[in-house]
Design a protein around this nucleic acid. Sequence first.
DNA 1: TCAAGTTGTCTATGATAATAGACAACTTGA
DNA 2: TCAAGTTGTCTATTATCATAGACAACTTGA
Lengths: 242, 242
Amino acid sequence: MSMQDTASSGVALWRLVADGIERGIADGRFAAGDKLPGEMEIAETYRVNRHTVRRALAALAERGLVRAERGSGTYVEAQKLAYPLRSRTRFSEIVGAEGREPHGRLIEASEDVATRELARELGLKTGAPLVRIEAIRLADRTPICVSTTWLSAELFPGAGTVFSATRSMTKMLEHYGISDYRRGATRITAGIVDATDAARLDLPLGRPILVVDATDLDLEGKPLVTKHSRFAAERVEFVVEP
Amino acid sequence: MSMQDTASSGVALWRLVADGIERGIADGRFAAGDKLPGEMEIAETYRVNRHTVRRALAALAERGLVRAERGSGTYVEAQKLAYPLRSRTRFSEIVGAEGREPHGRLIEASEDVATRELARELGLKTGAPLVRIEAIRLADRTPICVSTTWLSAELFPGAGTVFSATRSMTKMLEHYGISDYRRGATRITAGIVDATDAARLDLPLGRPILVVDATDLDLEGKPLVTKHSRFAAERVEFVVEP
DNA sequence: TCAAGTTGTCTATGATAATAGACAACTTGA
DNA sequence: TCAAGTTGTCTATTATCATAGACAACTTGA
């Protein structure tokens, strides 16, 4: 196969191969730790020169999805983060439980006013002052999700600054005297990543994302924060437990 | 901008430009008949050489999405097919009503056995022999949808051959003495086109599709065929009428 | 009629993509 | 130990991608 044979699609052959392998990793045909087929074998299945396969594997290795071992083979590095959806879910605990290092980082914090929908979720009046926090969460160095969090600016003054310092939603709430909270209504849908989130999640454009809208409640059931999160679908797996 | 500047994404610059323009057409920023910006202007907005823009426009023109007029400009050709969802819908009639030429083509016909779900839809027993027809439908030369159709192999022996000859689901059913039928349960969802359908629909990978599951019934309400159709979302617009 | 703006076509150059072959360096299992 | 199989690294060739400049052919509106 040559570049002409792709009907001049404008997509490089090595990219097609890389996407194919990545899809295989994403949908589980190649699991974490698995050995990929040899470069020659991949070249044959895609009807491509071995060097083209090497280009594809190099691109995947650069992103940390695979790791090549000379003389042995190329192995899958990536593994999906199992994300249980319990009443009490803490990102740091979930990530830590898998032996990975959780990180949080503030992207942006700003003042906002409640739309009717946000007000209803938070039990506030439409137009009430809110703090909007745009944050990203990572496991080791892999971005897992970006989320937009809204909370009352009157109940949590300067929340953006506090979150920026603590890098944790849980610790930020502790700062305001909230020792514990639990998950309220949660809606899960899917979609395609937009350009902004793609850059933040280090995802190619067009990849599927899991969209989660959730509101966290205090122990009395009063809404604390409402979140709109976008997870890289290929890096996380929601687990619903009874 | 040069190829290196795209961070070696493996996607040609002209393809990015073409996809951008096509998206503009798909989401209505450029309507049918509209004049696109001049090649120089497009080149500036994408920060690309004019020749690269010409390559993109040539690719779009080849697919019939735009038409270049020397000395005047480049105009949008494509228009979305309005697809009314009535009880009695015939692809050929819908396309013909818009002054376009309907076509049907058999991709593949094979024997299959009914899964529990298919059997329920068709009112058959699980494991009953089925004919599976993979077909594509076009308006003029533009692919609109691909659909997988299942029907009883006992009630419609050799259905694949008949469909291949008539190129029409309606005429195929007429061959078995069924003069009329109507649409039964219809479920519409959305998704991302897979590689196989993308090639068949002449769609770039990652584009959204409308997924329609429907069962056609005879006049007594007995199931005849059940279909799983994938429409190119950017070329068709379902219209629900009261 | 004419100037401005449009698309069409040509030549040219450098960088990248894809192929091909050969061999080195290394791992694994017999 | 050794053979087979793996990844790593060279050189080399051809086609495509992207840029650049110039000019022709054509349309439009003043």
